[in-house]
Nucleic acid binder design. Structure first.
Lengths: 229, 229
DNA sequence: GAATATATGTATCAGTGATACATCTAGTAC
DNA sequence: GTACTAGATGTATCACTGATACATATATTC
């Protein structure tokens, strides 16, 4: 009966753990519960994984396989920016569909801790931003663009998980805000003067507070009166 | 000896817990360790807090008091967008300085869970976006602007905590990307400042020649110095 | 068939959050 | 001043957790 090669038990343990995690995302889970589900005792689990973290790592690895499986097919438009959009959406969708996995991967916040498997999607993303940079489509360094995308993408996904509520409009808005920022292709609404006001406000330290205030007032007057808006 | 009013022990327990959490941010902590630090047994702790979560909530409350204490003074420029900038920076700074507290507040990701105290800063933020909306400075609903800011602000803070490395440039880039998105004042590639200079020069009669000249000089300086191009 | 590596069970450990119960203390009422 | 009461604290114990030493079973290989 136990002639299975490649350790059937090992995979069943991973599956059982994944099920338990999926059943109560973000919550802690008991190794004994995992063992009971498989019908095995704890030393067996420890034989395969060495520690609870070992099992968790294996589950995460398993989760990333699922994730990258879904994701890989989506990023082949040829246009790196479009691929970044697709990757963003796939990221959010995976997090909302698998909050248990996602929480393990990105929801355990402590300094200096990031599961090894986390680097794989990160590599893909950096490949995309590097390609975009090569095509001259970024106004920031490729590395910073990738960091920006990742932080915002994770942020909006975790937020939706915490609120237990999907918000596709928010995700889209943040996605486009991010892409606009790294490509410098923002759409300005009020014309260059309104934009200049915001730039001035954002860099109040350059001219100093009072000069900046006067500058902004002048620009506002100009904006109201100028024929070329 | 034990004549202290207002339950000295209670506060000492909170302080001890806060210290332990600060000593190993993101890690779990033991109630017994807290009790030992104060020189008290567990039933005392349970008498005051009822459960571990009760203690955690009290610690969070304590953390938010610190946070809002630091933060309150920073948001009074009169300009809601500027206040949002200050709030963003204060948020990030607090997270980096107090990763233990911050992890408790925003780093425990599980569906439907957000500490009650979390709503306080959220209320402040929504007040600011509501004010900005009233001034007609937003191109998205006030609520969505607040959600956008919050998700991005938390995201970039958690990211820096996880990487155990501050990245002020990333925080600034995400802050401005967010503000650009909600105000619709994105900067296009040539730079709004250059465009604004042209508009000002073409309408020198509005402000008068000398003011216009000074305005143009300031805009030029801004254009050279501002990190937002 | 013997030897060996892999896999699994038994028994037990220290540490955890939690609680029932007894005890002590401080303040209040008479 | 004594008795009572409510709040505060200690003792003892619970079930459960992750972890491990040790023995045992199974399967593969020679």
């Amino acid at each position: 009966m136990t002639e299975r090669v490649g350790s059937d038990t090992r995979e069943r343990l991973i599956t059982a753990a994944a099920d338990l995690i999926a059943a109560s995302p973000g919550e802690d889970f008991s190794l004994r519960a995992v063992c009971d589900a498989v019908g095995v005792k704890m030393p067996t689990l420890y034989h395969f994984f060495g520690s609870k973290q070992g099992l968790i790592d294996a589950v995460i690895e398993h989760g990333f396989d699922l994730y990258l499986g879904e994701k890989a097919s989506m990023e082949n438009s040829g246009d790196p920016i479009q691929d970044i959009r697709a990757g963003w959406d796939a990221h959010v969708a995976f997090g909302l569909e698998n909050p248990g996995f996602y929480t393990l991967m990105y929801g355990k916040v402590r300094p200096g801790y990031s599961p090894a498997a986390q680097s794989r999607p990160s590599e893909i993303l950096r490949g995309l931003t590097a390609e975009a940079a090569k095509q001259g489509r970024l106004v920031v360094p490729s590395e910073q663009a990738a960091a920006h995308i990742l932080a915002a993408n994770i942020g909006v996904t975790l937020r939706q998980i915490i609120l237990a509520q999907a918000d596709q409009e928010l995700s889209r808005a943040m996605r486009e805000a991010t892409i606009a920022a790294i490509t410098g292709t923002g759409t300005s609404r009020g014309g260059p003067l309104a934009a200049a006001i915001e730039v001035a406000a954002a860099n109040a330290d350059v001219l100093g507070p009072s000069e900046t205030q006067l500058l902004i007032e002048w620009l506002s007057r100009l904006n109201r009166s100028s024929s070329i808006s």
